[in-house]
C-alpha cells in the first residue's frame, strides 16, 4: 500500500553546544512518515531520538542547538522556514507530542481537568468537562473524576503518563510524536493504549512517530522501524522484517540484549563497549569499534544508507559495509 507522505526529513544535521563546543548530534538523517502510518524509532540512549523529534516541532533549545543543514517538510511545507503563525498552528494542534518526561511538561499548579480542558478549548473553542472525562476514560484511567480534580504530583507515574497521552490526542492531531509514552505502564495497559492509538490512526487519519526501546511494543503495532546509532539512521524497514532478520550488527546486538522472563542464572548478553561521546565520534562507521564484524573499510568510510531487498519499492535499507547495493 502506498500512502502520501506526511513528514519528510531530508539530510538533516543538528549540533548541540556542549561546554562551549559545537558537537554533532544528528547527521544526514533522511526519513519519511506517511499518512496513517506508525513508525518506530529505536536506538541507544543518547543517539539523538528526542532531538530528531523535537526538531520536527522546532522545539530545540534555541541558543544551545543549531540545525546545520537539511529540510523538514510537514504536509508539504518547510518547517525550518515557517513563520510564527505557521509554527503556532503546527504546535497548537496539527502535531502533538507526548514528551519523554511527563513531569516537566505538565503544569504543576493546574489540575489535570483544567489542563486537558485548555487543550480542548484551544482546539474546539469551548470548555467541555464531559469530553475531558471521556478522554481520560479512553486512555484507560480508572476513576476519571478523581484524576480530573488531581494535581500532577498527586498522580502515580503511570497515571501521569496517561494524562499526557489524553492531552496529546485531545486536539485530534495529524501527527502524534510519542517519546517513550508507556515506560511506566504494564503490558496490559500498554496494549490498550496502543490499541487506542491504532484506532485513532483510522478515525483521524493520524500518523504516529513512536520513540521506544520496547521492541515488544514495536513488534506488534508499528508498520516500519528505524534504527539510529550515534546520530545516524543505520537500518530501516518493515518492522517484522527487521526484527526477524536484522542486517546491521548493531540492530542484531540490540535484539539479543532483550531480557527474557525466565532467568538464566548468568549475566545478560550485552553489546560490548559504550556508544561514542559526541565530541569523539569514531571515523568511518561510528559503530566500528564495537562491531564484531569490523573489516578494512569500516574505520575509513561512513557507510551510506543503502536500499536492500529485491523489489524496487522495498523499504529496507541498511548503512553497513557488509552490504553492497546502490545507495538510496
Amino acid at each position: 500500500m502506498t500512502r502520501d507522505s506526511l513528514v519528510r526529513i531530508e539530510h538533516l544535521d543538528i549540533d548541540y553546544r556542549q561546554h562551549g563546543v559545537w558537537v554533532p548530534v544528528v547527521r544526514d538523517v533522511s526519513f519519511e512518515l506517511r499518512e496513517r502510518e506508525m513508525v518506530s524509532l529505536v536506538g541507544e540512549s543518547g543517539c539523538g531520538k528526542t532531538t530528531l523529534a523535537l526538531s520536527i516541532l522546532r522545539l530545540l533549545p534555541e541558543r544551545e542547538s543549531a540545525v546545520r543543514g537539511g529540510r523538514i517538510l510537514f504536509d508539504g511545507s518547510d518547517v525550518l522556514r515557517m513563520d510564527p503563525d505557521g509554527l503556532r498552528s503546527l504546535r497548537g494542534g496539527r502535531i502533538s507530542m507526548i514528551f519523554q518526561d511527563p513531569f516537566s511538561s505538565l503544569n504543576p499548579v493546574l489540575t489535570v481537568g483544567e489542563q486537558v480542558e485548555e487543550v480542548l478549548e484551544c482546539h474546539e473553542g469551548r470548555r467541555d468537562p464531559a469530553r475531558v472525562k471521556s478522554l481520560l476514560e479512553r486512555v484507560v484511567l480508572p476513576d476519571p473524576s478523581r484524576i480530573y480534580s488531581s494535581f500532577p504530583h498527586q498522580l502515580s507515574g503511570g497515571q501521569r503518563q496517561r494524562v499526557m497521552i489524553a492531552m496529546a490526542i485531545a486536539s485530534s492531531p495529524k501527527l502524534l510524536i510519542a517519546d517513550e509514552p508507556t515506560t511506566a505502564l504494564d503490558v496490559t495497559v500498554q496494549k490498550e493504549i496502543l490499541d487506542l492509538l491504532t484506532r485513532l490512526q483510522d478515525e483521524l487519519g493520524m500518523s504516529v512517530l513512536l520513540i521506544t526501546h520496547n521492541l515488544g511494543l514495536v513488534a506488534e503495532r508499528s508498520h516500519r522501524l528505524a534504527v539510529m546509532y550515534s546520530g545516524r539512521l543505520v537500518e530501516s524497514g518493515e518492522t517484522a522484517a527487521v526484527l526477524a532478520s536484522p542486517r546491521h550488527p548493531y540492530t542484531q546486538g540490540l535484539i539479543q540484549s532483550l531480557p527474557r522472563i525466565r532467568r538464566t542464572g548468568s549475566r545478560l548478553p550485552m553489546l560490548p563497549g559504550q556508544p561514542p561521546e559526541l565530541s569523539r565520534i569514531p571515523s568511518g562507521c561510528a559503530f566500528h569499534p564495537r562491531c564484531a564484524k569490523v573489516f578494512a573499510p569500516c574505520s575509513r568510510e561512513i557507510p551510506p544508507l543503502k536500499k536492500m531487498g529485491s523489489s524496487p519499492d522495498s523499504d529496507e535499507a541498511v548503512a553497513c559495509h557488509l552490504f553492497g547495493g546502490p545507495a538510496s
Binding site: 536506538g43 526501546h213 540490540l254 540484549s257 531480557p259 545478560l268 550485552m270
Partner: peptide
C-alpha cells in the same frame, strides 16, 4: 522504582548486571 524502564535494552542489560 522502575530503574531501567527509560533505558534501551543494551543499557538495561548493563544496569541489571551491575545491580547483580
Amino acid at each position: 522504582d522502575e530503574p531501567v524502564s527509560a533505558l534501551d535494552l543494551s543499557i538495561q542489560a548493563q544496569i541489571l548486571n551491575l545491580l547483580l
